[in-house]
Amino acid sequence: DDWEIHFNNITIRLHGVSEEQIEELKELIKNGAHEEELRKWAEEVNR
């Protein structure tokens, strides 16, 4: 699925990401992940 997530003036566009991966991302954000951590997560997902 395609997703677009907005938070802290950042837009993250995701393509072909599962519901499970979105839940992981929500947890990262909820736990106060920094932009660098989110980038690493996105790189892993996009492999």
Rank of each mutant, 00 (worst) to 15 (best):
W3N: 03
I29L: 08
V45E: 03
E43L: 01
I10M: 07
N8D: 09
E23M: 13
E20Y: 07
S18P: 05
I22F: 09
I12F: 00
V45Q: 10
Q21G: 04
V45W: 13
V17N: 01
N9V: 06
E19V: 13
E20T: 10
E37F: 10
H6F: 04
W41M: 09
E23Q: 13
E23T: 13
L38V: 07
H6I: 14
S18E: 02
Q21D: 08
G16T: 10
E19Q: 14
R13N: 13
S18F: 04
G32L: 03
E36N: 13
L38I: 11
I10C: 12
R13E: 06
E4A: 03
G16S: 10
L28C: 01
N31C: 09
I12D: 02
A33Y: 04
H34P: 12
K30H: 08
N8M: 12
R39C: 15
E36Q: 07
D1V: 15
L25H: 00
E43D: 13
R47K: 15
A42T: 05
L38K: 01
R13W: 02
W3A: 03
E36R: 06
W3D: 03
E4I: 11
W3K: 03
E23A: 12
A42V: 14
H6Y: 04
E35Y: 11
G32T: 01
S18A: 06
G32S: 03
Q21R: 11
A33R: 02
K30A: 12
F7T: 03
A42P: 03
K26I: 14
V17D: 00
D1A: 14
I22S: 02
E36I: 03
E4K: 05
I29A: 02
H6M: 10
W41S: 03
G16W: 12
Q21S: 08
E44G: 08
L28R: 03
K26E: 07
R39S: 05
E44R: 07
N46W: 06
L25Q: 00
T11A: 01
E4Y: 09
F7W: 09
I10F: 02
A42R: 02
A33C: 11
L38T: 00
L14Q: 01
I29V: 07
I22D: 00
L28W: 02
H15S: 10
K30P: 00
D2C: 15
D1G: 14
I12V: 06
G32K: 03
R13Q: 08
L25A: 03
I10L: 09
D1P: 13
H6A: 07
R13T: 04
G16M: 05
K30L: 09
L14R: 02
K26M: 15
T11E: 05
A33P: 02
N31A: 14
I22L: 09
H6W: 03
D1E: 15
E37A: 14
A42Y: 14
W3R: 04
S18I: 04
T11D: 07
I12C: 05
K40R: 14
K30N: 06
I29H: 02
N8E: 11
E43R: 00
N8G: 15
W41G: 02
G16I: 12
V45S: 02
V17C: 06
E20C: 07
G16R: 11
N9A: 07
E44D: 08
E24Q: 12
K26P: 00
L38W: 01
L25C: 02
N9K: 07
W3H: 07
E35A: 10
G32F: 03
N8I: 07
L28M: 13
N31G: 09
H6G: 03
R39N: 11
H6P: 03
I12S: 08
I10V: 10
L14K: 02
H15V: 12
L38C: 04
R39Q: 13
F7H: 05
L28G: 00
V45C: 05
R47V: 14
E35Q: 04
E4V: 12
E24W: 06
E36P: 03
N46Y: 05
G32A: 02
K26L: 15
G16D: 11
S18H: 05
D1M: 15
D2Y: 15
E35L: 13
